[in-house]
């Protein structure tokens, strides 16, 4: 690990201003992904700003009947919150499908959104990777791509976003609330938060320099069946090959998003509208323009069947 200086932020704006003003600065909260990457020298911050002391760890009801989740709420606490379990079950289901108990106890809401891909070529510093080292090429394209993306990818990068939580937040229509270095705040719809790779896979989110996530807002509950189905190589503690988050009403309408297939939670509004018509039309729309590789083409069929299973489960009750 490269040496770094360390400080504890005293306020959200203090943290954002210092992050913007200090070259090589990064925020640290749970640290479960950042420290892993620092040990491998994939991340090499010269300065860490610890935001753990800033509060931002509550879950509060919003005036419009939704929930505001503090950036520092741990994955365990978010999954266990009674209101989340009752009204946003897809979020609890997604959270407990991810990582291990130890990691969920540390990992935060904001950090989960900001975690980096687990593409093996991103992790192997001996391989080219446009995300890790812009312009160096992509080792994954033409390499072993079984875990990697099939849609939303580019000629520069086929990495997937690894989060389960973010897939549920996508289907719930969450918004990411931030503070900029000048103290102003804004809300970024989750659909706009993660960027597609295009020519710049190193640019992963809509965040500006120094901008700090302070909370994630969920709209008022919509009811319906909340389902999260994750397909992986082992029954626990593994990243998704394919996951499906869905909220489906009694009339069969609703929303659906996929994990494990794209550089961000994969939701297409037009596909939502096709839910009453069944898995085939939904999958066809979600995968319009898909560019699967030989190793990961199975994900298209696997996703279609997993969507079918989720729709069947929604109708069964």
């Amino acid at each position: 690990m490269r040496p770094f200086t360390y400080e504890r932020a005293t306020s959200a704006q203090d943290a954002a201003a210092k992050a913007a003003a200090t070259p090589g600065a990064r925020f640290i909260a749970g640290g479960t992904n950042l420290l892993d990457l620092m040990k491998l020298e994939i991340e090499t911050p010269g300065h860490l700003i610890d935001v753990n002391g800033l509060g931002m760890d509550g879950i509060d009801e919003t005036p419009d009947g939704g929930l505001r989740i503090g950036a520092l709420v741990r994955n365990t606490d978010l999954a266990a919150d009674k209101r989340v379990r009752k009204d946003y079950g897809v979020l609890t289901r997604a959270l407990v499908a991810g990582a291990s108990g130890q990691l969920r106890n540390k990992a935060t809401t904001a950090g989960n959104l900001l975690q980096r891909t687990r593409c093996p070529y991103f992790y192997d510093v001996n391989m080219p990777c446009n995300k890790r080292k812009p312009g160096s090429g992509c080792g994954a394209i033409g390499g072993f791509s079984r875990q990697l993306g099939v849609v939303g990818t580019s000629d520069a990068c086929i990495a997937t976003h690894p989060s389960d939580m973010a897939v549920a937040m996508s289907v719930l229509g969450a918004s990411v609330e931030t503070m900029r270095p000048d103290g102003t705040t804004r809300a970024i719809p989750i659909a706009d938060f993660h960027k597609l790779p295009g020519e710049t896979p190193n640019v992963e989110t809509a965040l500006e320099k120094g901008e700090l996530i302070i909370s994630v807002a969920l709209p008022r509950p919509v009811g319906g069946r909340h389902l999260y189905r994750k397909v992986r190589d082992r029954a626990s503690y593994a990243f998704a090959l394919v996951s499906v988050a869905a909220v489906i009403g009694k009339d069969g309408s609703g929303a659906v998003a996929l994990g494990g297939v794209a550089p961000r939670p994969w939701r297409v509004q037009e596909a939502d509208a096709l839910l009453p018509k069944g898995a085939g039309p939904v999958a066809d729309r979600l995968f319009a323009g898909a560019a699967p590789r030989e190793d990961n083409a199975f994900k298209l069929l696997l996703a279609r069947r997993t969507i079918a299973s989720v729709i069947a489960e929604a109708r069964s009750a």
Binding site: Y6, G31, L48, T76, L103
Partner: peptide, 15 residues
Amino acid sequence: GRRINSCLTLAVMHE
């Protein structure tokens, strides 16, 4: 009171 991976956290974060 909570189990964590002690390898993925900095000692200075535990004041």
